[in-house]
């Protein structure tokens, strides 16, 4: 049994030390928000935060985590930056198939955590490890800007709550 701290809770994982965190999350703890895309740290779909830093869980052995604090997409909304990012994602409507988006959100939230006002170049540098096969890059960039500055930089969508119906 290996104990790992996920989203503030100590969880027990029955698996070998060298098992990547991705599979501990998905198949042992049943937290499938973190996605498998490549398994070789080339796509970013599996991105989680370890001690606040965006890392690729598909190549991170659980045995190396020790006391590190893991945050996954299921809980990223609990941080101020994560919440802002999720809201911007909704307003700008970033997602398409959505499969890469857990990873995009995690990378973006980590970026804002460390750089509250990133330039386009900063965004490109921090986000280029995340592949989106649907090609949502333009909106990812816009949504991060919007989350950071509050300025509406792209076409906004109308929320679907009942009140908004005209």
């Amino acid at each position: 049994m290996i104990s790992i701290n996920v989203n503030g809770e100590d969880r027990q994982v029955d698996g070998p030390e060298d098992m990547p965190l991705l599979w501990a999350l998905r198949d042992v703890l049943g937290m499938t928000g973190t996605k498998f895309g490549c398994g070789v740290a080339q796509c970013g779909a599996c991105t989680v935060h370890v001690n606040g830093q965006a890392v690729r869980s598909c190549v991170l052995p659980i045995g190396t985590l020790k006391d590190a604090k893991v945050t996954t997409v299921e809980a990223v909304g609990q941080s101020e930056q994560g919440k802002k990012i999720q809201q911007a994602w909704l307003d700008v409507e970033v997602v398409q198939c959505g499969y890469c988006q857990s990873g995009q959100i995690m990378s973006a939230a980590a970026l804002l955590q460390h750089n509250p006002n990133p330039s386009d170049a900063d965004i490109d540098a921090a986000m280029s490890g995340n592949i989106c096969r649907c090609g949502t890059y333009v909106r990812v960039r816009q949504a991060i800007k919007q989350a950071a500055t509050g300025e509406k930089v792209a076409m906004q969508t109308i929320p679907n709550d009942a009140e908004a119906v005209r």
Binding site: V76, I85, E93, V94, I158
Partner: peptide, 10 residues
């Protein structure tokens, strides 16, 4: 807005 955006971001 799409129906699935929120659940694709959390």
């Amino acid at each position: 807005r799409r129906v699935d955006t929120a659940d694709k971001t959390n």
